[in-house]
């Protein structure tokens, strides 16, 4: 497989760069200051391939903090917020769609 850096980046809508945090695996997003955030609303949004390319290149270079960075679709809300662009990203952001067993039954 080509590395994410070499892969051609095609963008059809707004995207963010997301990964898992090294220390605990938490879902994180690349922000505009070159840091990582757990808030999708604070993520840097790219709307063109050049910006997306720059974000993923920075993210991949940050191996100490992030694992498995990739480009994920987002939707922009009218209020200026973000929504995950697909179900997988929604589940990554908000957790499993099921009740966790601790709260289930006993």
């Amino acid at each position: 497989m080509a590395s994410p850096l070499e892969r051609k980046i095609k963008i059809t809508g707004p995207v963010v760069v997301t990964a898992n945090r090294v220390a605990d695996g938490a879902v994180i997003y690349r922000d505009a200051d070159g840091d990582w955030t757990t808030s999708l609303d604070a993520a840097a949004v790219a709307t063109d391939a050049a910006r997306a390319h720059a974000l993923i290149a920075e993210a991949n270079a940050d191996d100490l903090r992030a694992v498995g960075a990739y480009i994920a679709p987002v939707e922009l809300t009218e209020a200026g917020g973000r929504r995950p662009g697909n179900l997988r990203e929604l589940i990554r952001l908000s957790g499993p769609t099921i009740e966790l067993p601790v709260t289930f039954g006993i």
Binding site: D24, G25, V27, V67, R88, I91, R92
Partner: peptide
């Protein structure tokens, strides 16, 4: 990665 996998540690969507 190969070292963690040797010990049964995977990375899933939200966590290890």
């Amino acid at each position: 990665k190969p070292l963690r996998l040797m010990n049964g540690v995977y990375l899933q969507l939200h966590a290890y």
